[in-house]
Structure formats: structure tokens, C-alpha cells
Amino acid sequence: MTIPGPTQAPEWTGRPEEIKAVPVRHPGRWAAAAIVLVLIAMFVHSLLTNPRFEWGVIGSYFLSPRVLDGLEITILLTVVCMAIGIVLGVILAVMRLSANPLISGASWVYIWFFRGTPVLVQLLFWYNMAALYPQFSLGVPFGPSFVHGNANSLVTALTAAILGLGLNEGAYMAEIVRAGILSVEHGQVEAAQALGMTRALTMRRIILPQAMRVIIPPTGNETISMLKTSSLASVITVTELLYAVQLIYSVNFQTIPLLIVASLWYLIATSVLTVGQYYIERHYSRGSARELPPTPLQRLRKNLFTFHSGLPTPPAELPSGEQR
């Protein structure tokens, strides 16, 4: 810790004695902590003693192939749908900022529609698309077509889920990306233009990399949300994690243990994503912070240190000058 300004002046010889004061006691905090501790103890006690948790059943199904297959589908859905969502989001965001009213209007309508209807309804729509468009064809608009297909055979449950979740995600990502683009200072665009960079190049090399800092945290949020929302695909018979355990407990009636199995896997997956998000954020904070933020390990070490030392805040951070 550095000594505050005045003590560094040349004529100042001795550093004053460090203040040793009796810290303020917080009895309320201690009481609250005690209550929390009791509640935790009660919860753990019930986890261990209530036989209906069926820890044995949980253990035997935790790594069963059917559960793991379901987990795989869940991860596949999350990755593919987020990829669709991000690409679509960037396109829609750039369209939304276009000077052409038809292009920005189209983007607005897309976002309005896909954000305005429940994703569950959208999933059911895609699943039943064959009822609306039994045949589809690829060709010249209003002209001859080259490829014909049967919607029922093309739109399987999995593709319906990917379309439903991905297209819905695109609408949300569009707003996130747009916010990121708008967060970049206009001077950046001018500097790029003055160097002769085209709009597309400016967007790709100057704006989007800076927008990433704003885009990443909510995108991490969306990915975690997607991981859990993908369980809605169980409604249209996609055997992702939730539907996989549902199929098992519909036969052996071990409902609670199997739901716990699914929950544990969801928790593990979101934890992994959280860690990943942290490091991606660190990468894109290049040049924005003087030092990179501490890794969790470094922070843990620091927190432990401050806890032990018992001093709530170092004096340098107090706005003491202004309050006097």
C-alpha cells in the first residue's frame, strides 16, 4: 500500500503512527450468521437423513448411458442454438442500424415477433410446421422450383427444437449486439473512416471487437439460460436431459431422485459455462483496464487475507477528504 500524497512531500520526515482503534462490533450480523448456519445445518441434516432422497438411486443413474445421452443432446442444442442466435443476432443488429428503413424495419419486425411470442409456442409451431406447409420447394421465387421435399420428414423433433430455440435466441442476441455496437464511441468510426477503412472493415476490425466487452456478459447469461430453456424441447419429444430422465422415472417412478440427477447435471454444466465466460471476458478486456482482473484463485487468496486481517477497507479507499 502506498502512503497518501501529503506524506510524500519532501519536508515531511516522519510517518505518523498507524491508527489502532477498536473496530465497531456488529451483533446483528453475528445473529444473522447464526440463523443462517442453523438453517444450513437443518437442510444438510434432512439431505442425509430423509430416505426419500434415494441417494443410492441418484448414484446409480448419475452416469447411466441414457442420462448421458440426454446430456449430450442438451449440450448440442445449447451450442447449436447459441451459434445460430449469435450469428443471427449480429446480422439483425447491423440491419437494425441500417439507414434503409425497409432493412431496419424488417429487423424490428423480426425482433418484435420472436420476442413477443412464448418460445414454447414457437417450438410447437415448428414441430407442427408440416400442418401449415406440407410441401416445401427450393427454386426461383414465384417461378419454377428445383428441389421438393416433405416437411414432415425434414422437420424432425430435433430440427424443430433447433429452429425454435435458435431463431428465438437471435431476437434477444440482436438487442444485446446492438447495445454493444452503440456503446462504442463515435470517434472510433471517424478515426477508421479517416484511415480509408470501409464500413464493413470498420465494423469487423474496430467496432465489434470493442463491442464485445459489452456483449459478452449478457451473452454468457443467455447461454446459461439457453442450457435450461432447452429442457422445453422435452415437450416436442426431443430426448434431451429432462426428457431422458422423465422417460426413466415414468417406468420406475423414482421421480425425485431422477429430477435431482437432471438438476445436478444442469448445475455442473452452468458452472462450467460460468468459468468459461469469465475467461472470455478477461480476454476482451485487453486495453480497457490497466491490469487484467484477478482470476478467481487470486481473488480467493485476497479475500481470505482481508478476512483474516479483520480490517474492513484499506483507508486509501475511503472518500475521507470529501466528507469532512
Partner: peptide, 14 residues
Amino acid sequence: KIGMVFQRFNLFPH
């Protein structure tokens, strides 16, 4: 072919 220098520098921070 024309260089420009701005009041607020406008360097690319990343």
C-alpha cells in the same frame, strides 16, 4: 491518402 489527427486522439483502445 489524407491523414487526419483528432483532438481526442481516437486511438483504437483494443
